[in-house]
């Protein structure tokens, strides 16, 4: 396509967007809600992943062995660990070490344990770190299955809750966003339908002088993409602002909990939003124009 035509088509796209600004605004609104929701969901999921990842590194599963374990038992347990693929690393803590640690932790009251001389109340134990937090429960069950194991410490409830929240957010937002994208496509194609209807005289003249369908479609596609562009820019701005507020709020609640900085993901989000927005705009337009050109509206006679 020649550059002079391209300039003409882009001007036409802008002109038509402006003439039709009320409907265009509605389209921008729906697309924008859709994108903000998508962005929020992604940010929630990313932050939970980060938090759970952190907990995972902190959260070492304690495996306590039955009392009266011999060296043979300890070796047996060690080899069982080798068969569980979700184990990242293990560290043996003997009952003597456990006692020492506990004494130190109690400080001055450490001599309380002096009464136990000769009879250590702590079991031998392993610190086990898990590779994939998703398979946590499964791994805990496997550890419990080892005969020499007395008990396995449970994972913290916070991590469990967070993973549940994350999964729920993912599933719900997937459906809601899917639905909203359909609504956005519907509204965009209706907006463009109105534009086409307002310009049916021009379209019929274009057809009569032999403009190709591609050429006729182009200004409308550009108009749709402009809608997407505006929605993409605005929604990134809104998300940035709201995320800032949320980060502040969470920081006030607990100084240790910090969110991923927006600047880490902002450019990617902007890029994705522009891409999704413009693709939705172009698609919505395309559907509408094709439908119009296929029906009698796309004719030369009797279109007014």
């Amino acid at each position: 396509m020649k550059t002079s035509s391209l300039g003409y088509l882009i001007r036409e796209g802008f002109r038509s967007l402006w003439t039709n600004r009320n409907m265009a605004l509605a389209s921008v609104g729906v697309l924008l809600s859709c994108l903000v929701l998508l962005g929020s969901a992604v940010l929630v999921v990313l932050n939970i992943n980060q938090a759970v990842g952190w907990m995972e590194s902190q959260n070492i599963v304690m495996v306590y062995l039955k009392s009266g374990t011999t060296q043979a038992d300890i070796d047996a347990v060690q080899s069982k660990f080798g068969q569980i693929d979700n184990i990242a690393e293990t560290k043996f803590i003997s009952k003597e070490e456990a006692l020492e640690t506990q004494k130190k932790a109690l400080g001055e009251d450490g001599d309380l344990f002096d009464g136990y001389k000769g009879e250590n109340p702590f079991p031998d134990a392993y610190q086990v770190s898990v590779k994939d937090v998703e398979r946590y429960t499964e791994t805990v069950e496997e550890l419990r299955g080892i005969t020499q194991v007395e008990k396995v410490s449970e994972r913290t409830e916070e991590a469990e809750t967070m993973l549940n929240v994350r999964n729920t957010v993912s599933v719900i937002s997937f459906w809601v966003i899917g639905l909203l994208i359909l609504v956005a496509l519907f509204i965009i194609s209706n907006t463009i339908k109105i534009t086409i209807y307002e310009r049916r005289l021009e379209v019929s003249i274009m057809k009569s002088v032999g403009a190709t369908n591609g050429f006729i479609t182009m200004p409308f596609i550009i108009e749709g993409m402009l809608i997407g562009l505006i929605a993409g820019l605005l929604s990134t701005g809104i998300l940035w602002y709201v995320y800032g507020l949320a980060a502040d709020g969470i920081f006030k609640m607990s100084a240790f909990a910090t969110l991923i900085p927006f600047s880490d993901v902002g450019w990617l989000i902007l890029l994705c939003f522009l891409g999704i927005g413009m693709a939705a705009g172009a698609l919505g337009s395309f559907i509408s124009v094709q439908r119009y050109l296929r029906t009698n509206g796309g004719g030369v006679y009797n279109v007014l």
């Binding site: 396509m1 020649k2 035509s5 003409y8 005289l201 021009e202 019929s204 003249i205 274009m206 009569s208 002088v209 032999g210 403009a211 050429f215 006729i216 030369v300 007014l304």
Partner: peptide, 27 residues
């Protein structure tokens, strides 16, 4: 070239642009 009974000129374009339109849209 097609000529219609009801002229079919675009009201918001000048005479020049109405004629130019037919050329523009064929590139």
């Amino acid at each position: 070239g097609i000529v219609f009974q009801d002229f079919r000129l675009i009201p918001k374009m000048t005479v020049f642009d109405n004629v130019a339109f037919a050329m523009r849209v064929t590139g």
